[in-house]
Design a protein around this nucleic acid. Structure first.
Lengths: 209, 209
DNA sequence: ATATTTCAGTTGCAAATACAACGAACTAGC
DNA sequence: GCTAGTTCGTTGTATTTGCAACTGAAATAT
């Protein structure tokens, strides 16, 4: 898997030839979309970085997913419930393609190149999303804060084939991503440093030995 | 979403006309597949019930996913690492279709009906899987054992549109699914009962008002 | 029919984690 | 360069959770 997506060509075709898609721009901290009501919306992040964030009723905050270019998201992948509020927040300036799930199967009159390759590309994007979500579950199902931290860092380390990993979060957001209290996470990072397992400078971590 | 899949017809076509797929049968407690080595395998559960289970190095056990008919799984959706062992275990007798990810795009000579509808069906199956995984993340990212229990039960309750929910697990497995200690879970269930929030009989829970 | 294993339900205790709070360091805007 | 708002790093304390252990009930195997 991890098939390289030829999204640039694919998506340019889309925006040129197909009327059922919108390309939108968002600035840092803007809300790209919310998962409050069902509308079968699909979004594809073309550039930038964004997080799917949940605010609990008691003010707690969790980062559910972290999106990078080629990530696919939208409330159509979610069971929308009233229990909590989900929104996708731009972490930097973002370009986003937005269309409806129904458009996937409705081929447009001109039978544009986009629609011809859409299914295959979507399949690959969705497969990658499933892999990402499974990786996410791998981390948050770890029982202890220590295992969550090490689990996430070692996945990054394997991915980049390097003992050095830079988390794409502030430490505050990292705690929200791991679903743990920030001070508890900091304490555990301190323990890992004291035990000589990792070192840390800002949000760059290094596995020692 | 939640489009009803016409999988019976779809999958019968597959098994009749296409040589690139295998249909296999498993009895209760048999291992259907493992996620130890990369081989781009896709499985579709036709009947029965199965769990994706992780055994940690220190003997801990987590139920990562719970599969029902039409669930799609396989190591092709997973970043296989050496850190832990993942396997899919049949909870009852199971019928499973097994084929390779690569076969999706290689149309067979006869251009069987299966290959004609495969992409669309896979898209729907994958979309459903993404929804399932997001639901899973919704539960395990809850911060406390109480919120995990209530979160899972209320999702089931909403889904079935009933105050009564029956979990598809033993209580021991339920704890592994929520990624919490069994005794801690039992204690919290007791608290919820004492506080009059839920009642419980076996693995059937009821929300009280 | 009986033995063996698994599961449910508890509990005491130790360990991990959340909560609250604070000052220092850093960032962004004016 | 100053100010306001975040983020980082830390700590004391209360609460939650995990661990270990055990009993009786239920399920499964012999």
């Amino acid at each position: 898997m991890n098939t390289k997506l030829n999204t640039e060509a694919f998506l340019n075709d889309f925006s040129i030839s197909c009327s059922c898609v919108q390309k939108k721009y968002f600035t840092k901290n803007q809300v790209i979309t919310t998962y409050i009501q069902k509308r079968n919306q699909i979004c594809i992040l073309l550039s930038g970085e964004a997080d799917l964030v949940r605010y609990d009723l008691n003010g707690g905050r969790s980062i559910i997913e972290h999106f990078v270019p080629n990530s696919i998201f939208g409330e159509c992948f979610y069971n929308v419930t009233v229990n909590n509020e989900l929104s996708v927040e731009a972490k930097r300036n973002c370009e986003v393609l937005i269309f409806s799930y129904d458009n996937i199967f409705k081929k447009c009159k001109e039978s544009c190149k986009f629609h011809n390759t859409l299914s295959e590309n979507l399949l690959k994007m969705l497969t990658n999303k499933v892999i990402d979500l499974n990786t996410r579950i791998e981390v948050v199902t770890q029982r202890t804060t220590r295992e969550k931290i090490l689990g996430y860092l070692s996945i990054l380390s394997t991915k980049n084939n390097s003992k050095n990993v830079t988390i794409p979060f502030s430490l505050t957001d990292f705690a929200d991503f791991l679903s743990v209290d920030r001070s508890a996470m900091m304490r555990e990072i301190k323990n890992l440093k004291d035990e000589g397992i990792i070192s840390k400078e800002g949000n760059k971590f290094t596995f020692l030995q």
